[in-house]
């Protein structure tokens, strides 16, 4: 309903994601050539480049681990069972009925429960299996010379093949699921630009709207301190009083807004409010800029700061003398 552009993925995160994506795709292409499935780069190049890519991947992993730890982003991947059924239901049924996503993306929780579980599995099981089996595969002779004994390369190779199949299957699911955002490109765009339109909760909407309620209101707003000095007014207040800028009135005593004979009334009202009372509505006569006279309806309430009444604030609405045509 209400959305806001949010920086969801930092620069490093995007660099990591896309570098990892390219490396995994390249490792899969070259790896399955080494596995004897097809001819693409030529066997020798496939082997050599697969090895280089493996090292690049390892370096990337080291940086990614550092980043996850230092930024606390690792917490994103702690698996949770909350909403996991809802997420599954969504993918299996809800998505076809245009039901909204059951979980919301926020900067604090970018991943839905299924993603958390899958990525956790990848990071804790599949990728370590791939890296360890891969480097044992690559440095098989050296490992043997260092005293590790394998009856054959086959165990290592089979684990590595197993991991490769899981990663490729993941890749296809991942690419497809990336299109399940609304619109379908939103997730992909976000991973490229870092920004995404994230849906706001009503609390977030309110939080954002409230400060503007006073500023943008057509009711005049005022705030007097305990001694009756004007501390804050809004644009509507200035318009009603005929002033052009807050600087003309802020810091001056509120008595300038009344005829001298009405000043005690204002003082009484202030005292009342400072005593804790509220004024629901009252029509008063005002003195605006250059002595202009007028009437307005006002409200008043005490302003509490740190539990103490620090002044009086309220809203005013101009009351026209001549009747408006109905």
């Amino acid at each position: 309903m209400y959305t806001r552009k949010v920086k969801l993925y930092s620069g490093f995160e995007r660099f990591w994601h896309w570098t990892q994506a390219l490396l995994i795709i390249f490792l899969a292409l070259s790896g399955f050539e080494v596995h004897g499935v097809y001819t693409l780069f030529g066997y020798e190049k496939a082997v050599i480049w697969h090895d280089y890519a493996a090292w690049a991947f390892l370096v990337l992993i080291v940086f990614a681990i550092f980043w996850h730890i230092t930024t606390g982003a690792w917490r994103q991947y702690i698996p949770t069972t909350r909403f996991i059924k809802a997420q599954l239901d969504y993918y299996l049924f809800g998505i076809f009925r245009n039901v909204p996503h059951p979980t919301r993306k926020t900067t604090l929780s970018k991943l839905n429960p299924l993603q958390r579980l899958t990525y956790f599995g990848l990071k804790v099981l599949v990728i370590p299996v791939q890296v360890i089996s891969g480097f044992l595969y690559l440095y098989y002779h050296q490992a043997e010379q260092a005293g590790l004994h394998f009856s054959s390369l086959s165990g290592i190779a089979l684990w590595h093949t197993f991991g490769a199949f899981l990663l490729v299957a993941f890749l296809f699911f991942h690419i497809y699921l990336a299109t399940t955002g609304t619109p379908w490109t939103s997730n992909i765009k976000a991973m490229i630009t870092g920004w995404e339109d994230v849906e706001l909760s009503m609390d977030e909407v309110k939080e954002e709207a409230y400060p503007n309620v006073v500023k943008a209101s057509e009711m005049g707003y005022y705030f007097l301190d305990r001694d009756g000095y004007i501390r804050d007014v809004n644009a509507a207040w200035l318009r009603i009083y005929g002033y052009t800028s807050a600087g003309e009135v802020v810091g001056r005593h509120s008595s300038i807004t009344r005829n001298p004979e009405d000043a005690p009334l204002l003082k009484d009202m202030l005292d009342q409010v400072l005593a804790g009372e509220k004024i629901e509505s009252r029509i008063v006569e005002r003195v605006g800029k250059d002595g202009q006279q007028g009437k307005h309806l006002l409200t008043a309430h005490p302003v509490y700061i740190s539990g103490e009444i620090a002044g009086m604030a309220g809203f005013i609405v101009d009351v026209k003398n001549k009747k408006e045509p109905v």
Binding site: H35, L153, T161, L166, F172
Partner: peptide, 27 residues
């Protein structure tokens, strides 16, 4: 001995291929 490019586990390769086909087909 295990020779890369020549040797494989046919079972593993078959299961893996099925997994990938399921991923593509399912998507």
């Amino acid at each position: 001995f295990y020779l890369p490019g020549r040797d494989r586990s046919k079972t593993l390769d078959m299961l893996g291929s099925i997994l990938i086909l399921l991923a593509i087909g399912g998507s």
